[in-house]
């Protein structure tokens, strides 16, 4: 899965006494990418596509991957506070913020706390708001295969993205979901304290959703669109929750280079 075309550098900064790591590649204005709750498997084709136009920071959120766990963290907002600081510590003045799934929840919290440095907020199949119909799929009540395959539009896409590294990704998932359970166990994957704070987020926002997202219902996208003053919704026909894995170049192409970097 990991593309090795371009060399990435690995950097860490310390925030609240905890190391936060990012893989960095490409050039241009900064794009910060926050991974799904399943953890970041590495430098993905989506990162590679973004890096043709952006200096792309694939950040391990605190408690995931190579970023140390803040034992005190109890909600995604705690991670958002740390990540806002981490972007400063990485020397990023302004940035495009891309959040994938649960990473989108954290990205929305970051914007709610401070949108002044965010040129564009891109939420891809983001959790964070309670669907008015249906539920956000509960990974705690499924096994790995059932959950991850539900993220793809079909078994073929799942096999192409995950099949050859199934054991390794399963281990990453097992590790990642402990942190997930620490910060979003109940309510699961949303906060009623998020939407009211989005009303003042004046950064342009792009909402990208797979039409066939079986993890986060499309209604969540519509609620984000209602809550964020400047939001555009792009629904990718036929795509699943992991739309940036299914169509990395298409999703990356939707991310706008800011007019003034």
């Amino acid at each position: 899965m990991a593309a090795a075309a371009a060399a990435q550098t690995e950097r860490s900064v310390v925030v609240a006494g905890r190391r936060v790591r990012a893989l960095i590649g490409g050039s241009g204005p900064a794009a910060v990418v926050l991974h799904h709750s399943t953890g970041n498997p590495g430098w993905l084709p989506f990162h590679e596509e973004l890096s043709t136009r952006f200096t792309t920071f694939a950040v391990d959120m605190p408690g995931y991957g190579q970023s140390e766990r803040p034992e005190w963290a109890r909600e995604p907002r705690d991670l958002a506070v740390m990540l806002n600081r981490a972007t400063r510590a990485f020397g990023i003045a302004r940035f495009v913020l891309v959040g994938l799934g649960f990473g989108g929840f954290v990205a929305a919290e970051m914007a709610a706390l401070d949108a002044s440095r965010i040129d564009q907020l891109v939420l891809v199949g983001a959790a964070g708001l309670q669907p008015r119909e249906g539920e956000i799929a509960d990974q705690m009540m499924m096994d790995y295969h059932e959950y991850v395959s539900a993220g793809f539009r079909d078994a073929e896409r799942y096999e192409a993205s995950y099949g050859h590294q199934a054991k390794e990704l399963r281990e990453l998932w097992e590790f990642s979901r402990e942190m997930t359970a620490r910060v979003t166990w109940k309510p699961y994957m949303f906060s009623r304290r998020l939407a009211p704070l989005l009303a003042d987020v004046d950064s342009p926002a792009l909402l990208v959703w797979g039409e066939a997202d079986a993890i986060v219902p499309l209604d969540v996208a519509r609620q984000y669109q209602e809550a964020l003053p400047q939001a555009v919704l792009e629904v990718i026909p036929g795509a699943g929750h992991l739309v940036e894995m299914e169509e990395p170049s298409r999703v990356a192409s939707l991310v706008r280079v800011p007019a003034v970097a």
């Binding site: 953890g39 970041n40 498997p41 590495g42 391990d60 991957g65 190579q66 140390e68 766990r69 034992e71 590294q165 054991k167 390794e168 281990e171 990453l172 590790f175």
Partner: peptide, 10 residues
């Protein structure tokens, strides 16, 4: 473990 030993080399 609190920290995955390495995420790049499984």
């Amino acid at each position: 473990n609190n920290l995955l030993p390495t995420v790049t080399t499984y």
